[in-house]
Design a protein around this nucleic acid. Structure first.
Lengths: 203, 203
DNA sequence: GCTCCGATGTTGTCGGCGCTCACATTGTCT
DNA sequence: AGACAATGTGAGCGCCGACAACATCGGAGC
């Protein structure tokens, strides 16, 4: 048993899993194809049978990250409560997701590798689906609102929660800047700012 | 004239300038000490006389970036208009600064190198001063507001504008997500969401 | 003016990395 | 059985960050 098989069996998904772990532990820059290959007991060139280059593997990891984010959204948005409560729960769960996995969040939204190439195909699908879920949640939270207003609100809402996570993940908020606000207070403030009020009625 | 001087003269600041150009053109990951040294006509080990390692040079570039951001803020905040108008102008100019220099913005707020080490000393000073300027502008825009409320609002405001730039800089907003909103419409929406309303009076 | 020494720059070297090429092995389809 | 595509191997290229030993420069003190 376990004789060193010439063929790994499922090297591709093993690489994605191992790369995701490396991303979460030390950030996207720390991912080394050689390291991954060695830790999986495979030669240095083997990964190139499954991914054109390092960025292609990172794109696959990012895609998996968006799949997980979709699951987070779907879980939060399908629960009880009115539209506004479900939207709030979705944002809370996104913020927790991003807080606990800063490396993965960086890869998905902030990484240099996103700027290197046009957006990799494997990740735009899941990323767009995640955005669509948020969009629908905003529609559900403001029933009957002007669709164009909903578009703008979705953009600003996402900007607020992502920006907060980006800044907090790099330690930008020092105690003297926010005291006496607790992390929970900040979470409430971010949610209130993100969700905001219903649109002004023009009739 | 121009005989190959053994001593460069001001290699340190030349390195920072060249590195900033590289960061702006191709992102923080693309900065190579060897490249910079060669393009400055100096040996590959010379940079290490002025910076402990690559990250130290990047920190110096980030610090310079924050100095420039401070100048942007000061220029916008010192002009005419009431507090709210000046605050809005500061945010507009920040957004323009970040839009035109995505690589530098990534280095200052998003880069992996910020996660690698504790925040480098050379940049925390300028970064904190920039934050303090925004803070004071928020105070000026909402005179007499509860100081704790101002703290929270500063955090959410910064989150919104930075998050928008992060997302837009990586091409996250596709036309079908925002149509028929123009970039100018989005700018207005982001500003309105960021600045928001005055605090509720509790008396 | 001379000497000495710290600051600055150079060359040589090491290990790690992404990536490619020619070759080896395996599983599968006919 | 034979052929072929998929998958894995080993060697090697060039680039990179970093360090060490050595070379040169320029100013401080005599």
């Amino acid at each position: 048993m376990d004789k060193p098989a010439y063929h790994h069996g499922d090297l591709k998904s093993a690489l994605i899993t191992a790369a995701m772990a490396a991303v979460e532990q030390a950030g996207p820059d720390a991912v080394s194809l050689r390291d991954l290959a060695q830790s999986l007991g495979v030669s240095r060139a083997a990964p190139y049978r499954h991914f054109a280059d390092r960025d292609a593997l990172l794109a696959a990891v990012a895609a998996k990250g968006f799949e997980e984010l979709i699951a987070v959204y779907e879980n939060a948005l399908s629960g009880p409560g009115d539209g506004r409560e479900r939207l709030r729960r979705g944002l809370v769960d996104y913020l927790e997701f991003a807080r606990r996995r800063p490396g993965l969040h960086a890869l998905m939204f902030e990484s240099d590798f996103l700027r290197r190439n046009p957006p990799p195909r494997v990740m735009i699908g899941p990323a767009d689906r995640a955005y669509a879920l948020l969009w629908e949640a905003v529609e559900g939270a403001f029933p009957g609102a002007d669709p164009v207003w909903v578009r703008a609100r979705t953009v600003t809402m996402l900007s607020t929660v992502i920006g907060y996570r980006v800044l907090d993940n790099v330690g930008r908020f020092k105690p003297h800047m926010v005291e006496p606000l607790t992390p929970a207070d900040l979470l409430d403030a971010v949610l209130e700012a993100a969700i905001g009020e219903a649109p002004a009625r023009s009739d």
